[in-house]
Design a protein around this nucleic acid. Structure first.
Length: 427
RNA sequence: GGAGAGGUGGCAGAGUGGUCGAAUGUACCUGACUCGAAAUCAGGCGUAGGUGCAAGCCUACCGUGGGUUCGAAUCCCACCCUCUCCGCCA
């Protein structure tokens, strides 16, 4: 959520920066609502002040044993007017707040301008794509003989659900364990295990709600008619919200958390895209990194976090490139985002495998996550999140990049200890 | 699931429906005393919002949401959470 004071003081500037990311903000409507709010709030508070002082007089008069009937008659008139004002104000503030909740974050000044992914800027490349002396198969064909089973997944749960068994299932588990160990042991993240089902307000905190309800899976508890809850679409949600409604001490920052979790996405708007294979699933695993930092530290932390994600690909010896997303291609909550794209030989291209974002105070304001700064003031923290990495897509990259002519798959050296020493799948 | 207890400021802990945003203690900050510290004394010390150039003034907040009332931390209803015991379970 944007700082409403920024909207009040520099509405044109906000409109321009939102336009840079392709968001058309109806500034006139906002300005009108805000003007209305101002007069209504002032009037309401005046009435409240009047009621409070009269009520106080009643108390004093009663304690002196005086007749309070005349004062009661006076306050009686206030009652209806005040109630009408209060409810109108509350409606208006809900409206204003609802509007504010739909505004995306402002892009950082260092973000390249652009309308869509064609405006993204490659920052660096690592590794050289392997040259194959046989016809490259995609991960679906490579994985099928070893336990990558799309038919059974679909039979149980529909399309975009997959069953893994045997050595593929183990490789999948090995990848997650390897990533989690690297992030905790080498990069200083604290391991976390989080709820996968969360309350709606948590999703408001990180920005999935109210705008992206269609991307989520909703769940209802059997035997109750309680509130709807949601399956997390990333553990960024549960990890970042660990600091909601809290005031951290300055020396507690940065908070660095990581978790391995499943991610559930309805992929409502993705009909027909990436239908083959593991690339786009309703359920996939991810090792997520989250940092909660002081504002001055967040951009340095973003660079570090990208390097933490890169370390996984480097250890796996998978070629990749780092891309700075342009203003038009960034997610709702992000002020700046780097994507990591891994080389997929069957597609002959780089595909997204990690996304690292600095959300600045955007999520913190929604969550009311603050810290006591050096001046002793409560200040909003900055929040960052990044994949380190998406496990399913990493599995795709390993299967494709490490495939052999005879249909076997070489196990990357760093994963062999996690595979009981196995060096070749299907060997 | 059953029975009971409870949720008030950083923490502890008061609070007959009426100058209660909230006693008191403790922690913390500032000053005095001291060579310095401790102890002691004095003062300060919540969050959010509105308004104003500012000093300030005003509003809201005692788990959450409703309700009663001129007035609610206090009364009523619903919900959430915590603790104890029992049951059931992984």
């Amino acid at each position: 959520m944007l700082d409403i004071n920024l909207l009040r003081n520099d509405l044109d500037g906000v409109v321009a920066r939102l336009a840079a990311r392709g968001f058309a903000f109806d500034a006139a409507t906002f300005a009108a609502l805000e003007a209305e709010r101002k007069t209504l709030q002032t009037a309401t508070q005046d009435l409240q002040a009047k009621r409070n002082s009269v009520s106080k007089q009643i108390g004093i008069a009663k304690s002196k044993g005086e007749d309070v009937a005349p004062i009661l008659a006076e306050v009686e008139n206030l009652k209806g007017e005040l109630a009408a004002n209060e409810s109108a104000l509350s409606t208006l503030q809900d409206k204003l707040n609802g509007l504010l909740l739909t505004l995306p974050n402002l892009p950082h000044e260092s973000v390249p301008a652009g309308d869509d992914e064609s405006g993204n800027v490659e920052v660096r490349r690592w590794g050289t794509p392997r040259s194959f002396d046989f016809e490259v198969r995609d991960h679906v064909d490579v994985g099928a003989p070893h336990g990558l089973d799309f038919e059974t997944g679909a039979r149980l749960s529909g399309s975009r659900f997959t069953l893994l068994r045997g050595q593929i299932a183990r490789l999948h588990r090995a990848l997650a364990q390897f990533m989690l160990n690297t992030q905790t042991e080498e990069h200083g993240y604290t391991e976390a295990y989080t709820p996968y089902i969360v309350n709606p307000e948590v999703l408001y905190g990180t920005g999935q709600l109210p705008k992206f309800a269609d991307d989520m899976f909703r769940v209802e508890r059997g035997g109750t008619d309680g509130q709807t809850q949601y399956l997390i679409s990333t553990s960024e949600i549960s990890l970042t919200n660990t600091v909601r409604d809290t005031i951290l001490k300055a020396d507690e920052l940065p908070v660095k958390l990581t978790a391995h979790s499943p991610c559930f996405r309805s992929e409502a708007g993705a009909a027909g895209r990436d239908t083959r294979g593991l690339i786009r699933q309703h359920q996939f695993d991810k090792v997520e990194m989250v940092q909660i930092t002081a504002p001055e530290q967040s951009y340095a932390a973003l660079e570090q976090m990208v390097s933490h994600a890169e370390a996984i690909l480097q250890k796996l010896e998978l070629p990749y490139r780092v891309v700075a997303l342009c203003t038009g291609d960034m997610g709702f909550s992000a002020a700046k985002t780097y994507d990591l794209e891994v080389w997929l030989p069957a597609q002959n291209t780089y595909r997204e495998i990690s996304s690292c974002s600095n959300c600045e105070s955007f999520q913190a304001r929604r969550m009311q996550a603050r810290f006591k700064n050096d001046a002793g003031k409560n200040e909003l923290v900055h929040t960052l999140n990044g994949s380190g990495l998406a496990v399913g897509r990493t599995l795709v990259a390993v299967l494709e990049n490490y495939q052999n002519a005879d249909g076997t798959v070489t196990v990357p050296a760093v994963l062999q200890p996690y595979m009981g020493g196995l060096t070749t799948i299907g060997g």
